[in-house]
Computed example of a mutant assay.
Amino acid sequence: MDNGSIRAGWLSLRAFTVADVGWVFEVSQDPALQQFVQLPSPYLMEHARFFVECLAIEKVASGERAEFLAEDAETGERLGRVGLGMNANASAEVGYWVAPGARGRGVAPSAVRAVCRWAFAERQLELIEWRAEVGNEASRRVAQKVGFLMEGQLRRRLVHRGERVDAWIGSLLKDELEAGSEQSRSSAGH
C-alpha cells in the first residue's frame, strides 16, 4: 500500500526510499533523539538500513505502518519523520522526530497534523494515540499543539534500553482534528 505524498504548507511529506538510509543514520546519532527514542546503542548503519527497508518501506507496503519523511517542499532538505503504527481497530499510534538542525522551526507540529489529517481521511482511522517517556517535554509540546488530549501517565508502560519507564499518553479523535483543534487541551491535574 502506497502512502503517496502530502503537502503541508512549506513542508512536503513523502515515502522513504533507500536513498534516505544515510540521513536516518546521521540523525539517529543525535544524543537528544537517543535519550527518548528506543534506538539500538551504538546505532549502526545496519540499524538505519533496517528502519528504512523493513519498517518504512516493507511494513508500509503491507499496510502495517505509515511512514513519512518531512522535507522542505522548496529545497528538498530532509527535516524529520512521522510514522503511524496501524492497529486493527481503526486506530494507530503516532511517533515522530526531527533532525537537530531543523528543530524550533515548527516541523513536527505541521508534519504530525498533516499525517493525522491524512490518516483520518485516507485510512478511516477513528483514534490516534500518542505515547512518550515521561520527561520528553518536546514530544509532549508537539502533541498538545496538534490537539492531542493528555489523558495521563501510565506506570512502567514503555521499555527504554531494557528498563521499564513511565509514559505519558494522549489521544486525538477524528472530529477533534477536523474541528481545527490546535490549542493545548489537557485534563485536570495532568
Rank of each mutant, 00 (worst) to 15 (best):
F51D: 10
V52D: 06
E53N: 04
E53Q: 12
L55V: 03
A56H: 14
I57N: 00
A61F: 03
S62I: 08
G63M: 07
E64L: 12
E64W: 04
R65T: 00
A66I: 05
E67V: 10
F68M: 11
F68I: 11
A70C: 08
D72K: 12
A73E: 11
E74L: 11
T75L: 13
G76V: 01
G76D: 12
R78V: 03
L79D: 01
G80N: 07
V82G: 03
G83P: 00
L84D: 01
G85V: 15
N87T: 09
N87G: 15
A88R: 01
A90S: 15
A92C: 12
E93N: 09
V94D: 03
G95F: 06
A99N: 04
P100L: 00
G101I: 00
A102R: 07
R103W: 04
G106N: 06
G106T: 10
G106V: 10
G106S: 05
V107A: 02
A108Q: 04
P109Q: 10
S110P: 02
A111Q: 08
A111M: 05
A111C: 07
V112E: 07
R113F: 08
R113V: 04
V115R: 04
C116M: 13
C116V: 12
R117L: 13
R117N: 13
W118A: 00
W118D: 00
W118V: 00
A119V: 08
E122Y: 01
E122N: 02
Q124T: 07
L125F: 03
E126H: 15
L127E: 09
W130R: 01
A132R: 09
E133W: 10
E133D: 05
E133I: 13
V134I: 11
N136P: 03
N136Q: 07
V142Q: 05
A143C: 13
Q144D: 03
V146K: 02
G147W: 05
G147N: 05
G147C: 02
F148K: 00
F148V: 02
F148N: 00
F148L: 01
F148Q: 00
L149F: 06
M150K: 09
E151Y: 03
E151C: 12
G152P: 01
Q153R: 15
Q153L: 11
L154G: 02
R155C: 04
L158S: 07
V159D: 02
V159Y: 02
R161Q: 15
G162Y: 05
E163H: 14
R164P: 07
